[in-house]
């Protein structure tokens, strides 16, 4: 469900860019998806194919670049890597973590013609 709306967001960006930058077809889409963005990559691929069907990105290849989860620990001041929002600090065990990276959902670049 969620991935379907995200893919609709991607398609909107593709359509806007096509108008602004004068391309007609999108052949490949590179997305950056953080580990904490709660995006299911398989669902994303499936939804992408459905959503772009018949559009300027019909049949386009979807490349997903995963980005690691990073957080700053308030008590110990370390930047640590996390897999989930509720992970404890790997240095001191605290849950007082501020996520600093890994919630990205970004369209990075396109191959177009």
């Amino acid at each position: 469900m969620h991935e379907m709306s995200l893919c609709e967001g991607v398609l909107q960006v593709l359509q806007d860019s096509a108008r602004q930058q004068g391309f007609l077809r999108v052949k490949t889409v590179w997305l950056e998806i953080g580990a904490l963005a709660s995006v299911d990559v398989e669902a994303m691929r499936f939804s992408f194919d459905v959503v772009v069907n018949g559009s300027l990105a019909n049949g386009a290849r979807l490349e997903i670049i995963g980005l690691p989860g990073r957080a700053w620990c308030m008590p110990c001041g370390q930047t640590v890597s996390v897999e989930q929002r509720f992970d404890a600090c790997s240095e001191c065990g605290s849950y007082q973590l501020q996520v600093t990276g890994g919630d990205e959902m970004r369209i990075k670049e396109l191959e177009v013609e």
Binding site: L6, G9, V10, V13, S17, Q21, F23, K27, L31, M105, R106, I107, K108, E109, L110, E111, V112, E113
Partner: peptide, 12 residues
């Protein structure tokens, strides 16, 4: 074919 940098949030 050419590359286009987008760097835009999916929910932009």
């Amino acid at each position: 074919a050419r590359m286009v940098q987008i760097e835009q949030d999916i929910l932009g």
